[in-house]
Design a protein around this nucleic acid. Structure first.
Lengths: 221, 221
DNA sequence: AGTTGCCATTGACCTAGGTCAAAAATATTT
DNA sequence: AAATATTTTTGACCTAGGTCAATGGCAACT
């Protein structure tokens, strides 16, 4: 397992920082270990700092009055989250919880803002980070509003295929129930869609492994 | 009507820049006048620069295969758009078109990136801008996925009330059809919801003016 | 091996809201 | 003002997908 400074040095956010700065960043970062399913923070909590995943996976999500969850994003090793709130001094806009046992790095607000202000390259990295995230959100809005559930699933499978660099099969990186939350649907419906797409010969489902039998038609969904 | 430098100096993005820089910014900005309903750019167009609204209103939107529109955001005077693409050198992630006759400022990519790199305060403004936008998008995802149409409408009305600083009535800043696109529904459904909420005594609709008769219950939607 | 608990699947039912078509109300042009 | 075009509203119908409840798998623990 990597140590603090390894994670930091390899992260996109801190890429290109001089050694001295990296050490400085590592110094202000506090390690936090959390078990599976533990909350990191809640919506409307005051944001005294932000986090980076060192190990594990963290979901950012909103909850409806009725208790339904919508996952906004899932973060893995090297990815920062909660930074948005840090810059306004506003409370966190959503909840965060671990999906598996995880190790996080915590960066207190003050010192980080100071670093960014002093470090143009860090500021540019941050801008790139936020831009990418905006693009993802725009995509998610498109998916939720303009596609039905099968289309959203297909879109996610293609995303996984890209990420895992295969076009014959992918491995789900989430339990199916959580995937339903990410796609904005219920576990029951997701299950039915899996069944239907299997019958249609589009995919074959084997536990968490999904065989992609027809990329062409998958693209049209 | 304000001139170029007036718009720039008063914008959030360029706030706090020294005089000289402002003049420099104004120098690289090109004015562009567009009639109502004209396209500014299309999704996947190469992004050679970004825009700021000087006068009028511009919608950013995605279009489904079937032709349905989802508006991501509507920008008014002083607000920049299309900057996200500029930082990656990636194509635009969505379409942009005017809602009314508008005047825009166009900033070519190269020179703007140079400015941001050289100007920490501009970079910080940009970060704040993007953060705010992320927050809005997160909200929109929440609305689309976790609320039904009446809830989304109520949420928008409250947003307008805040923006227009009144709590008795608001004036729609969009034709109803466009509002439907923004809320992720159809004009027909929106019309029905207006009718229903009127019967329930929540609001009274008078053309583009919506009287807010019961803020309490409106909040619970 | 048996028990406990969790997750995934399947069935039955119901409703929010989409679609299509027509009418009515507003704008815009001549 | 008349004529035409554009929005908005209303009605009738239909379906994607949500909810509730029951059942089946599977893993962890004793």
């Amino acid at each position: 397992m990597k140590n603090k400074i390894g994670i930091i040095a390899d992260s996109f956010l801190f890429k290109g920082l001089p050694e001295a700065q990296l050490a400085e960043v590592a110094r202000i970062a506090k390690e936090k270990k959390l078990g599976r399913g533990e909350a990191v923070f809640f919506e409307d909590d005051p944001a005294s700092g932000f986090y980076m995943v060192a190990e594990g996976r963290v979901k950012i999500f909103k909850v409806s009055m009725g208790g339904k969850e919508q996952i906004l994003h899932v973060f893995g090793p090297g990815e920062p989250f909660g930074e948005v709130a840090v810059f306004h001094g506003q409370p966190f806009p959503a909840n965060a919880a671990t999906l598996v046992r995880s190790t996080l790095l915590y960066f207190p607000r003050q010192e980080f803002v100071r670093l960014v202000t002093a470090n143009p390259s860090l500021a540019l990295n941050m801008i790139a980070m936020l831009s990418l995230r905006l693009r993802r959100f725009a995509n998610q809005i498109e998916n939720l509003s303009l596609k039905e559930v099968p289309g959203r699933l297909a879109s996610y499978l293609r995303y996984l295929a890209e990420e895992q660099a295969r076009d014959d099969r992918v491995v789900l990186d989430l339990p199916k129930g959580q995937l339903a939350s990410l796609l904005g649907t219920s576990p029951e419906t997701l299950s039915r869609i899996f069944a239907r797409m299997s019958e249609e010969g589009l995919i074959r489902v084997q536990g968490k492994t999904i065989h992609l039998l027809d990329m062409e038609r998958l693209r049209e969904r």
